[in-house]
Amino acid sequence: MMFWAPAAVALATTMLAITRANPVHALLWFVVSLLAMAVIFFGLGAAFAAALEVIVYAGAIVVLFLFVVMMLSLDRAAALREKIFMARPVWVVPIIFVALLGAAIAFAVFGAPMPQMAGSAVPPRDVALRLFGDDLPAVELASLLLLAGLVVSFHLGVEPKK
């Protein structure tokens, strides 16, 4: 019950999110999907990851998305154009290919016999000890990646003088 209810919510809201014509509605459904994912993480015994999912994904990344959508100032005409585009059968071919690929991956992953092993919860203390112990270079690499993202955003964000 801790898994299937949020899993159903996540699947349904993700489906809604990728089929909306209005970006703001889609982002709000995406937030619901992320919150359901946080519940799933909590059920899997990853409490720290669940908190990060709410704080970073739903709190920071989607809000950044929403700010940019506000700056884009999309009007009704844009949503209407998107709705007209989606009324055409654009979904048929992607659904076929995605279903084929998904079936292949599912067969490869779940078809093979794999010994069952009861997993256990991983407390945040273990994560922190590993992250700031053996895996300290990963933290440095993450900071470098974020610095590169910052520099590129600043560079791209400046409008060139006419």
């Binding site: 990853a46 950044l64 998305f65 991983v122 993450a142 993202g149 910052l150 955003s153 791209l156």
Partner: peptide
């Protein structure tokens, strides 16, 4: 969770970083 190791959550944090940086550049 399956292998009872913190590596999964560490990789999740790395994915989170990647998503943030990718989204910032993509939105710019």
């Amino acid at each position: 969770m399956r292998w009872s190791t913190p590596d999964g959550q560490i990789m999740f944090i790395a994915v989170l970083n990647l998503a943030g940086a990718e989204l910032a550049i993509g939105l710019a």
